[in-house]
Design a protein around this nucleic acid. Structure first.
Length: 103
DNA sequence: TGAGTGACTTGAG
DNA sequence: ACTCAAGCCACTC
């Protein structure tokens, strides 16, 4: 179990992300009311069933890179999902500038 | 109870 | 641009 509430909060935040938009793990944690718990977010995402409709693919690392190892199955799957929503994925990474996530 | 682990982040070398 | 180290939160063994 993932401490019940926190998981639900993360799911809610995830579902509130508009299509074509991306967020970082730290951002999700912050919006879920637990800043600094970026690692927790990753663990929760891992518990999401494959047939879930949650947009887990819109969650990237702070540097705009996909959290998986390049070439892995999950990596390619996420990349495909992102490109399908009009997000440019170049060499396993996304331009954060077009989302205003770049500091 | 305590050491180990991970879909992370930030800062330094 | 890359690697290493420390900080972080909750879970697992």
């Amino acid at each position: 179990m993932v401490t019940g509430n926190s998981q639900q909060a993360i799911f809610t935040v995830l579902a509130s992300i508009p299509a074509g938009r991306i967020v970082t793990y730290g951002r999700v944690a912050e919006l879920a009311g637990m800043p600094g718990a970026a690692r927790r977010v990753g663990t929760v995402l891992k518990t999401i069933p494959g047939d879930s409709t949650l947009p887990w693919h819109r969650v990237l690392r702070a540097n705009g890179r996909i959290a998986f190892s390049p070439g892995s199955k999950a990596f390619r799957h996420q990349q495909a999902k992102l490109e399908k929503e009009g997000i440019q994925v170049i060499n396993g990474r996304v331009d954060l500038d077009q989302f205003g996530l770049h500091p």
